[in-house]
Amino acid sequence: MQSNQRGPQIAALSIVTLLVLWSALTFLISDKTLPSPMEVASAIATEWQSGELLFHLGATLLRVIAAFIIAMFIGSCIGILLGMDANVNRFVEPWLILLLNLPALVIIVLAYIWFGLNEAAAIGAVAINKIPNVVITLREGARSLDLAYAELARVYRFSWWKRLRHVVLPQLQPFFAAATRSGVSLIWKIVLVVELLGRSNGVGFQIYLYFQLFDVATILAYSFAFVAVMLLVEYLILQPIERRSTRWRASNARS
């Protein structure tokens, strides 16, 4: 109980320690390629004031959201199907292994070559990179569906929609949560690569630009700004949704 109450204090202490160590290191090394926390903060302020930071963060965030929705939708449908039908799973398994082991970079380069340097190719390439992970997570979920509830739905003649909404999807919720968590973090990293290779805006494009200028402070400014955006997504969107969808579990812990 006591350790729970001290959780935020310990986290704050951890961040302060990191900043102190970073400052000490920049003081000792004193090199242009290792900017101090203050220099990075100043770069963030400059980019913010010019409007560049918000514009590029927005462009990246939109790509992350689009790729995430596509990957989750297609990956979930395929995963649930594979978990429910062993023969389809056996057929699709080799494709899945191939996709899982194909480097993200190869998929991105091929997408740009085949479909051109456009937004659809960029988002599609990111989604294709993520789909196999979603498929595998949701396949395990579909395999672990409780037969007793399926029988209940059959006896009470649930429509397919009622079965999906009230019986199947709630059982898959932990698997959706796992796929979402790993998905968001993986997708935004791949989006940066896509932007670096073939887009003219976004955080990835800016990082590449400042890499050519050897401006490490601005590179870190964009990186930390986007991490901050993803933290907001985590705390303001993902965690509240998860809390809401697992209320019945919380009541279980209470009783």
């Binding site: 007793a148 509830y149 209940l152 009230h166 019986v167 709630p170 919720q173 019945w248 279980n252």
Partner: peptide, 8 residues
Amino acid sequence: EPRLLPWR
């Protein structure tokens, strides 16, 4: 067993 859906 009661077989109630735990999330409802």
